[in-house]
């Protein structure tokens, strides 16, 4: 069993299918949705963890892609712009998973590990410098 964090990007048309239902029922995947915005008027986004065996995940994603949905493993819904970050550390107590963390105790440098991010968005509210943002 492995867990993968994925960002699904829906074009305007592909939103009617019960995709998550099929992933669970037909591909035996455990789905943990962090955040979703799927509306008929606009492009949709879904950020989720899928857990299952590797082959099931591969086939499940092939099924998803057959609806013209893009599956993105590298890009997540929350972005941290290192050029805007001043390394203050105000976000640190507000990040529940240590996705934003102090990478070096002495210099107090901040870094972002997007694979730990659960998209709670609290860093976006709490970063005074606008370094954290959501792509949707």
């Amino acid at each position: 069993m492995i867990t993968q964090k994925l960002l699904l990007h829906f074009p305007q048309s592909a939103t009617e299918k019960p995709i998550v239902y099929h992933l669970v029922k037909d591909y035996n995947l455990i789905i943990n949705i962090f955040r979703a915005r799927v509306t008929p008027e606009e492009d949709g986004f879904l950020v989720l963890d899928v857990t299952g065996n590797e082959e099931d995940i591969r086939q499940g994603m092939a099924f998803v892609k057959s609806f013209n949905i893009q599956v993105n493993e590298a890009n997540k819904g929350v972005r941290w712009d290192s050029s805007k970050c001043v390394q203050c550390g105000n976000c640190i107590p507000h990040c529940p998973t240590e996705a934003l963390y102090i990478s070096d105790k002495k210099s107090r440098k901040i870094d972002f590990n997007s694979s730990l991010c659960v998209e709670c968005l609290s860093c976006i509210e709490n970063c005074p410098f606008g370094a954290c943002s959501s792509i949707f």
């Binding site: 001043v86 390394q87 203050c88 976000c91 640190i92 107590p93 507000h94 210099s107 107090r108 440098k109």
Partner: peptide, 13 residues
């Protein structure tokens, strides 16, 4: 208590 900061030590350095 968890600690946050609004002043940047790396920038000051």
């Amino acid at each position: 208590v968890e600690v946050g900061s609004l002043s940047s030590y790396p920038k000051a350095l």
